[in-house]
Design a protein around this nucleic acid. Sequence first.
DNA 1: ATGGTTGAATGTCAA
Length: 257
Amino acid sequence: MKIATFNAASVRARLPILIEWLATEEPDVLAIQETKVEDDKFPIADFEELGYNVAIHGQKAWNGVAILSRSSISSVRTGFGDELFPNDCRIISCQVNGLSIINTYVPNGNTVGSDKFIYKLAWLDRFRTYLDQNFHPDDQLVWLGDVNIAPEPIDVFDSKRMLGGVGHHPDEFVRLKKIVDFGLVDVFRKFEPGPNHYTFFDFTLPRSVDRNLGWRIDHIYATRGLAEVCTGCSIDMVPRSWTRPSDHTFVVAEFDL
DNA sequence: ATGGTTGAATGTCAA
């Protein structure tokens, strides 16, 4: 079973890339973040034509998450299920083939110390509670998406310079560790322990892709039992060089299920 | 060097 994640930075702007990539790679599940579109304007039919079922949670202009699946989707849950963090669409979960999938778009945080940064930390704390409330470490659970944190020095092109900045800050590391301590494995690192592997390349940094000046902020986590049957995880750099790319690219994990 | 690029919306903000 092939499961992938992609921050599209607008699902409508990235439709040609999404269609081309899905037709080529044929993942069983694709989690999309930053769809940037209200549900009634989401291009559902374009994905249905490729054989995908679609679950969406979107809003006007910002945020928005979606799950595409070749198998049927059930138990769709959006938001945290309470009145906290009500104004942004950043989390959707569902069941596919007996597997639980959680797709998140973690808040960016803007700058350290800002209201948005405080919000990001609170959101991460709430997400850990959400896991405790709804799931068990023995579940067959995949959590994936744009985490907006590069947790290790090797997860960003210049850790010394970025350390203490947004996306590479100790306060974020602590929150992410608490989430991972639920019982999750970062499956990319199961296969690739080394540096220079990134999923995001800043548009504003000249030739960042060519120079490999990126961040590994898009992650795929699995509960321990599921991680044991994960047979591979890789970053697909090819679509990042296509016409009108997102600033992120796809991450793919394969599970022997 | 406080820039640069992109998308949604058409001001300007968010990333």
